[in-house]
């Protein structure tokens, strides 16, 4: 494997990287791993809040339903939601895919459309039945 025309052995011999560089590299990787860890530990949300134009509405996530807002089609599928179709040019919002965890959002700026996952119940201690 060559890097900037040098082989790995040459790089190490030339001492291109010092110990401090490895330290920074290590810290950087650790931060990434910790962040990813936090990301995956986020709890799932309870409902979907959609802001379209001036209107904000809430929808339960525990259903299979397709919602249509003029130019945008939103799909809710038992706990997760995504923007299925949009008439915007970049299609970034569609590419975002499924969102299911608390405070995750999908936005379509050209259409002034925003949807995010919210929670009214983060946890409970026991169940009454």
């Amino acid at each position: 494997m060559k890097l900037f025309g040098y082989s790995m052995r040459e790089i190490l011999l030339l001492k291109l990287f010092k110990l401090g560089d490895f330290l920074i590299f290590f810290i950087f990787i650790s931060i990434v791993i910790i962040s990813l860890n936090f990301y995956f530990q986020l709890p799932k949300g309870d409902y979907l809040e959609i802001s379209h134009g001036n209107e904000t509405k809430q929808y339960t996530l525990m259903q299979n339903k397709t919602l249509i807002f003029d130019e945008i089609e939103v799909e809710i599928n038992m706990g997760k939601a995504k923007i299925k179709k949009s008439n915007c040019s970049n299609q970034y919002c569609v590419m975002q895919g499924w969102i299911s965890k608390i405070n995750h959002s999908a936005v379509c700026i050209p259409n002034l459309f925003k949807m995010s996952i919210k929670s009214k119940t983060l946890s409970y201690d026991s169940t009454n039945y």
């Binding site: 119940t121 946890s123 409970y124 201690d125 026991s126 169940t127 009454n128 039945y129």
Partner: peptide, 23 residues
């Protein structure tokens, strides 16, 4: 304490209250 679905809340866990979900 939860006995077969009936729940009794004794005290509270720290600053918050015990939270119970109903099936």
């Amino acid at each position: 304490t939860n006995f077969g679905g009936n729940i009794y809340a004794h005290g509270k866990p720290g600053k918050r209250l015990w939270e119970v979900a109903i099936q």
